[in-house]
Nucleic acid binder design. Structure first.
Lengths: 337, 337
DNA sequence: CTGAAAGCGCTAACAT
DNA sequence: ATGTTAGCGCTTTCAG
């Protein structure tokens, strides 16, 4: 292993001169600087991040906290796509990504402890229970954080626009002639609450009174529970003409159930998904769904976190909302009567 | 920030005593050890991984190299599911996961340089072009590696059993009465070659002569290219009764094309996928597909790497093959004639 | 323009 | 059973 010291010896200069050359300090003659750089490259020098971090207190490493109870975390395309864009953006700005967990070996560490232990410059938090005390601890710590789809006081967040999402969906359905609209929603989270509020509000704005039993509990990314809820809806005397699902994936459970009932999607009942997973465009009938811009969300999260890391005093916490768009597929029939 | 030194002061012992207490050294009285641990906890002490790594040369950090050109890397469920199980397994053994790339900030680093820079104890490599000189450099370096679905001399690898995969598929199809079997395969990789070999071999073993134009080039995780290949197959005078796809996702492109031709999956043409993504079980018709045990593969990769890291001299490189299984869905019709 | 020296936080060999 | 000490590889004042 080549150290700065070895280069110094070979070049007959001091180690500090080598350090300066390698880091592009201005108070060094180009000649020596270049000579040192050449030798360093020749010797196959690779700097040691750990030593550097120890000295500078900057790791250029971003923690990512994704919890996947029910392992829905990484498998959910919304998150895997987001993770990917976080990774790409962070790397382009010179930051690495390390996963944060609260289990590292035998002894449990809290998320904060884990992030501090690794010296993360900041942490992006998504797909977790934001009421978890450990999450709260991390967010209130000295480590900068950016949360996704949840906002804490004094911390930046990137929010997928769930309000606009349900608003667009409902308005579209109304335009298509639907007024008996059911909504199967995911487990209670901040996101779910927003969607519910927006759902009710937009229905009301359109003069639609939503029967209590048109709104069903489901689970995100869980086709079975949405299937079950679908069955209940289909068995009602006065059943809805359209069902909104918590996500595209869950909608598949609904479709199966609809077909089991001898009904046909589109002809007999309309359905709308959420997320806009890639598959939604390849499957037939193509899904009508609200596409979340997960790539943009990931990118902005990385940008915002890095901005905060690099300018802690001048960067103020902000909530950035990212709009999606409605993908008009072939699962919503225009009703005329 | 609390350092070992602060604890030492408070406890009126030396810093080495504190270090020993915290690391459970045996040559310390339980009494002092416990006292020190208590004080450390009270003070909210969090060790500094970087300092520790600098001293011990062990980072307890595993690099993961997933390249996602075409961004198919993380979005492909085979890999995201594998990544997840790598993460879970590594964490349970006290290792963190950091992504390795060859772009860190302005200056490009090779994969090896990146891993060495971060002091990774080892690297798991998947979803890359294994002929890339940078990958070869990493594999031949002093950093332990485990590769997935590709074997290098003297390095451990975890192989999804693609030979058994195509064998099982073809044998099943033959059992179902098919003999006109087409195969759309992914881009040329070691995996593709294995599948092709096994495809031809098993066909031959069953006395089936495969027409040259029954074997088509496609791309992994790319419904369009498989759709195109499907069209070509459907337009043949003597078209196949069954098509095998590179993966489930690509099969969706095939399905769309089949329907465009006014044909019906199952009734008019049989199809088989690969991977066994979760969706394949929820979609209707349920996919007949070869399920790869990505979770097991990820787990074993982490285990094997950690084993090599911890016992570099006694752990010998091995190739571990992980079998999958055929999921009999409803996309293959039994032919009787 | 270059170098000396201190020290980041920790571990571990070696005293005592 | 506890303490002393050196040093991991690097950056960064501060002096020259």
């Amino acid at each position: 292993m080549v150290r700065i010291k070895d280069i110094a010896q070979k070049c007959r200069v001091s180690i500090s001169t080598v350090s300066k050359a390698l880091n592009g300090a201005s108070d060094l003659s180009d000649k020596t600087a270049n000579r040192i750089k050449r030798v360093a490259a020749d010797m196959g020098y690779i700097p040691n991040a750990n030593a550097r971090v120890l000295k500078t207190n900057r790791s250029h490493n971003i923690g990512v906290l994704f919890v996947d109870n029910t392992s829905s975390g990484l498998k959910h395309e919304y998150f895997s796509s987001m993770l990917n864009s976080i990774k790409v953006e962070a790397e382009s700005k010179g930051f690495d990504i390390t996963f944060i967990s609260n289990l590292i070996g035998k002894d449990a560490k809290s998320y904060y402890e884990h992030a501090a232990y690794r010296g993360c410059d900041g942490v992006i938090i998504a797909s977790v229970d934001f009421t978890d005390p450990q999450v709260v601890e991390l967010v209130n710590s000295n480590i900068p954080t950016v949360t996704i789809d949840y906002t804490f006081n004094n911390r930046s967040s990137i929010m997928s626009d769930n309000i606009a999402g349900l608003e667009d969906i409902v308005n579209y359905l109304v335009k298509m002639g639907h007024s008996k609209i059911a909504f199967i929603h995911g487990e209670e989270t901040a996101v779910t609450n927003k969607r519910l509020t927006s759902f009710y509000r937009t229905c009301k704005a359109n003069g639609i009174q939503v029967p209590e039993d048109y709104v069903k509990n489901g689970l995100y990314h869980h086709p079975q529970s949405s299937g079950l809820a679908t069955r209940e809806l289909l068995e009602m005397k006065d059943r809805p003409t359209c069902i909104i699902y918590p996500d595209d994936y869950s909608m598949l459970g609904g479709i199966t159930e609809i077909e089991k009932h001898g009904l046909k999607v589109y002809d007999d009942i309309s359905i709308v998904g959420y997320d806009g997973i890639e598959l939604s465009r390849f499957i037939r009938p193509m899904f009508t769904t609200y596409v979340q811009d997960s790539e943009q969300i990931g990118r902005l999260a990385a940008d915002q976190l890095i901005e905060t890391i690099e300018n802690p005093l001048t960067t103020e916490a902000q909530m950035i909302t990212v709009k999606g768009h409605l993908q008009e597929g072939k699962t919503v029939k225009a009703l005329t009567n």
